Amino acid sequence: PNIDGTYPFRCDVSQVCIDTIGNFTCECSPVFNTTGTCIFNSSLCVNNNTCTSPIDPNVISCLYGTVNRNNTCIPWCNSTCPGFCERTNGYYQCNCMKWPGFQYTSDGKSCSGCGNRNYGYGCNESCQCNFGTCNPNATNVNQSCTCNSGYTEIFCDKRIDICALNNTYDSTIEDCITDPNDGDAVYICRPGYAIDSTTGNCTDVNECANNQSYCNVEVSSCMNTIGSYLCNCLSGYQSVNGSCIDINECAVNASACSVYNNTYCVNIKGSYECRCNFNYAIGGDYTQLYGNVLNTNELCLPINYTSFCANQCMPPATCSGTTGRCECPSSNYTLVNYALNDTLQTCQCPGHPFIYFNGTS
């Protein structure tokens, strides 16, 4: 045969081909050389392959690419390309184009499988597999690659999203990630959850109890929620753009302290105070100057400063509760230190030393 598997017509049907070194010769078959004319006689042939001599039944001639094996004509290619040996164009030959995935060997006598990178009829197409193996039996590019585990698409160049295929995990508490090394699904607890060492499941993290929140304890309180937490503003604060800001109760409510006489409103962090006005104090006690009477039954009264000058004034001087100093009955008197005790003060009469206070006038 030729290297493409075809069987050429080297001799006439009534002749036999004799192989010689580097060549061949054609001689008349003894089956058809009974009269010396070498004329083909189809009546001597059966199955279109085996022709028997009318003179000697042990003399046969094999036609159309068959060979004599134990006095029987069989296709020559049965032994070199079993399953591919067929009669084509009148002669038996190897038909390596019968199925995809095979090609002719270099001598044309048998069929061999495609290499690692080719497929199709005659192995004429090249595979372009990235993460897979070439399928030699493919008949088109869509069948040309058998993908490795974890890969898909025509050329096996795309990772299979295992997480998208696997719906057994709870996406509300855990995330699924495809491992780039082996393509397996890796499950990671979502923020706000952690692995329970006993069950192995993702469970809620109490950020408030574990000091994992970012709540400012001075202005807010932490409240745990499933998978997260909330920072609730304390009383006296309001949420503005996610931050707890002090409420200025005095500006919001101008009459916040109106129920308390002689007071004014002062805003403080998280609250406010109703403080006594100037020269007023809680119960009139000067030690309670600017005292806060909010949410109390106390009163803001004029301050009594008599304790500042008690037992320090000699008549006619008197101790003033308003100023906390010794004062004279009128501006005609002069307030001076007492001559016999400079820790005391008294009043000199007009015309002193010729006029003096006699105890009553």
Rank of each mutant, 00 (worst) to 15 (best):
D157F: 09
D157T: 06
D157R: 00
K158G: 07
R159A: 04
R159S: 02
I160H: 03
D161C: 14
D161M: 12
D161I: 12
I162Q: 15
I162P: 02
I162L: 15
C163T: 06
A164K: 13
A164E: 11
A164R: 12
A164L: 14
L165Q: 10
L165V: 08
L165C: 06
N166M: 08
N167S: 13
N167W: 03
N167F: 07
T168M: 09
Y169V: 03
Y169P: 00
Y169H: 06
Y169L: 06
Y169F: 15
Y169A: 02
D170A: 04
D170F: 01
D170G: 06
D170K: 02
D170C: 07
D170M: 03
S171K: 15
S171V: 13
S171P: 06
S171G: 06
T172P: 03
T172R: 02
T172Y: 02
I173N: 00
I173R: 05
I173V: 15
I173T: 13
I173W: 04
I173P: 03
E174V: 11
E174N: 10
D175M: 09
D175H: 13
C176S: 11
C176F: 10
C176Y: 09
C176Q: 10
C176H: 12
C176I: 05
C176V: 05
C176N: 09
I177T: 08
I177M: 10
I177G: 01
I177K: 06
T178V: 14
T178N: 13
D179R: 01
D179H: 04
D179F: 01
D179Q: 04
D179A: 07
P180D: 05
P180G: 02
P180Q: 05
N181V: 08
N181W: 00
N181C: 07
D182C: 01
D182T: 00
D182Y: 00
D182M: 00
G183M: 10
D184G: 14
D184R: 11
V186A: 04
V186W: 01
Y187D: 01
Y187K: 08
Y187P: 00
I188M: 06
I188D: 02
I188L: 09
C189M: 05
C189L: 06
C189Q: 08
R190E: 02
R190I: 01
P191A: 03
P191I: 02
P191K: 03
P191F: 00
G192A: 05
G192Q: 08
G192T: 01
Y193A: 01
Y193V: 02
Y193W: 14
A194E: 12
A194F: 10
A194L: 11
A194M: 12
I195M: 14
I195Y: 11
I195C: 07
D196A: 11
D196K: 06
S197N: 15
S197G: 13
S197T: 15
S197F: 15
S197A: 15
T198V: 15
T198F: 12
T199M: 10
T199Q: 10
T199I: 14
T199G: 14
T199H: 13
T199C: 10
G200P: 14
G200F: 05
N201Q: 15
N201I: 09
N201G: 07
